[in-house]
Design a protein around this nucleic acid. Sequence first.
DNA 1: GACTTAAGTGATTATAATAAGCATCCTGTG
DNA 2: CACAGGATGCTTATTATAATCACTTAAGTC
Lengths: 159, 159
Amino acid sequence: MEHFQRVCREAGAKLTPQRLEIFREVAATGDHPDAETIYRRVRKRMPTVSLDTIYRTLWLLVDLGIIQTLGAGGRERARFDANLDPHHHFVCVQCGSTRDFYSKDFDALALPDSLREIGRVEATHVEARGVCLDCAGKAAKAPPGPKSKSKSNTNTRTV
Amino acid sequence: MEHFQRVCREAGAKLTPQRLEIFREVAATGDHPDAETIYRRVRKRMPTVSLDTIYRTLWLLVDLGIIQTLGAGGRERARFDANLDPHHHFVCVQCGSTRDFYSKDFDALALPDSLREIGRVEATHVEARGVCLDCAGKAAKAPPGPKSKSKSNTNTRTV
DNA sequence: GACTTAAGTGATTATAATAAGCATCCTGTG
DNA sequence: CACAGGATGCTTATTATAATCACTTAAGTC
Ligand SMILES: [Mn+2]
Ligand SMILES: [Mn+2]
Ligand SMILES: [Zn+2]
Ligand SMILES: [Zn+2]
């Protein structure tokens, strides 16, 4: 939050209540919300914000390096992440939820030689894909229906 | 290609020349093209395809598990990948080009314990981000302009 | 190889997400 | 406390992608 205000000032970007709220919202939650979700949440406390300002602000914050975007795979829209510490993500292939996890090992992976002839690596990010405990629990109840009607998810098969 | 035809038959999907061409195109190149790019390329050999068929076919192939999508980060659109072998990606933060690389180590990373309470991991995928040799070369020429006008890229800062 | 039929295609029309334009408003500054 | 330029919200465009539908064609059946 300190950091947020300082960077904004240095960049000559004004500290408006909208920006404060939007940043607060992204930073508050560990999930990685998309623009629409942030809009819904921020509107509860500030009913006048426009979706437009949400988008402008989010990308402004990305450009300022205050937040990041998550590579939204498949048919998903962009997700935002205020966690700038080096970290990695677990993505549930059923429900799409994305959780942070940490690993010093992953932060500094020994890169294969083949990469040398491609480019200079600045950072590595690991995406672990699988089924979250919630979804696994639900699956245990809904027995072995072969044609599971679950329309739930669309981001399977995404690298 | 064999595999492609077999899976289509098993799924009751017809083998049309369009599908053949579209799959061929995705499988032919190591880059990870988006729908529009595939459209342009396929049209050269088959000028009558519609962009619509491109989209329908690509997502069909994804649903059949014959190709994958790449987590298109930032403001990018979805990219497609016919390489189903376990592999990883180098992404250039300047030009956005995405190259495959292989690493047995990365295929089977030792997962931190913290992941246990989140979910069961089925696969890990490493994204190495940095500057590709091409872009590094170009940067070497264009001297030390502090305000580099480069509109080039928009997918920096993407996890 | 002709017959049949459901699936596939292309053209057109719709959605959905995101961006631009502009008049008004408000933050930061003197 | 007045000012000026950036920021907001509304409305209107883009852009990517999906749905409709009439026509075509792949792939079994005889
Ligand atoms: Mn995160
Ligand atoms: Mn690949
Ligand atoms: Zn889940
Ligand atoms: Zn590059």
